[in-house]
């Protein structure tokens, strides 16, 4: 165990090229997924927050439930969509990083949408009378709220990123864990552990945890600073 640990540290300190490549691909995939999920999820959350329509409660319940989507199930569904016989098979992106981005976007879209819906609806409760009094329509109210809750929304986005970076099931299925092409941190850890190559698995594990902690620290600091600066 201690041997494995020191070997892992040696990989980290030496910036082993294989390891760097894997980490960079992980970041590229998860950051792309989070960007797509934010682009779609934030407006969706804002729209649900300020609108009133029949079945709204049901939509919210489903959205909240989807936050707990099992990654392997998402992986399976995206696999079926992208496989050669599937509806999107013509794209030919199965077993590429694009497929992994696709799957992770679907996985975290409900997280971004549901958490932003909550944050924006809380703000809406506070702002509604004032904004309506000024004559703001729902559309401009939604945009105002998106901007005014920007620090809460940043936390929401980072929560999505944490989930994407840490999941293994979806990327494993649609990426295929191909060495040098679709191998990311989590799939490598799973593979190397089963092969018995603990140093690489351990090293990646440490990086993954460090990234998650760094992301959360950044979110926390941003909120603290924003709270002090903007109230």
């Amino acid at each position: 165990m201690s041997e494995a640990l020191s070997a892992a540290l040696a990989l980290l300190v030496g910036l082993d090229s294989r390891l760097v490549e894997i980490v960079l691909l992980s970041l590229r995939v998860s950051l792309s997924a989070v960007a797509i999920a934010a682009l779609l999820g934030l407006p969706l959350g804002a729209a649900i927050a300020v609108s009133r329509f029949p079945g709204r409660q049901a939509v919210i319940v489903v959205l909240n439930a989807l936050m707990g989507l099992p990654p392997v199930v998402v992986g399976l569904l995206v696999y079926l969509l992208l496989s050669r016989a599937g509806p999107l098979g013509a794209l030919g992106i199965l077993f590429t990083p694009s497929a992994m981005v696709f799957a992770q976007s679907i996985l975290i879209l409900p997280i971004v949408a549901a958490l932003s819906r909550q944050a924006i609806e809380d703000a809406w409760r506070e702002y509604e009378e004032q904004l309506r009094s000024l004559g703001a329509g729902r559309m401009s109210a939604a945009l105002t709220l998106l901007w005014d809750t920007r620090f809460s929304l940043l936390t929401t986005i980072l929560a999505g990123f944490g989930r994407a970076a840490a999941e293994v099931g979806a990327v494993m299925i649609v990426g295929g864990n191909i060495d040098g092409v679709t191998r990311v941190m989590t799939t490598t850890i799973a593979l190397e552990t089963s092969k018995g190559d603990l140093p690489l698995a351990l090293g990646l594990g440490m990086i993954l945890i460090a990234i998650v902690i760094a992301v959360n620290a950044a979110a926390h600091l941003t909120r603290e600073l924003a709270q002090r600066r903007y109230g």
């Binding site: 506070e126 702002y127 009378e129 004032q130 009094s133 000024l134 004559g135 329509g137 105002t144 901007w147 005014d148 920007r150 620090f151 924003a226 903007y230 109230g231």
Partner: peptide, 18 residues
């Protein structure tokens, strides 16, 4: 949609984060 000709000031002012 036209500019309002009436305004209201509430007991607790609601200020935007700006």
């Amino acid at each position: 949609g036209a500019p309002r000709k009436q305004a209201m000031v509430f007991q607790r002012p609601v200020m935007l984060r700006r």
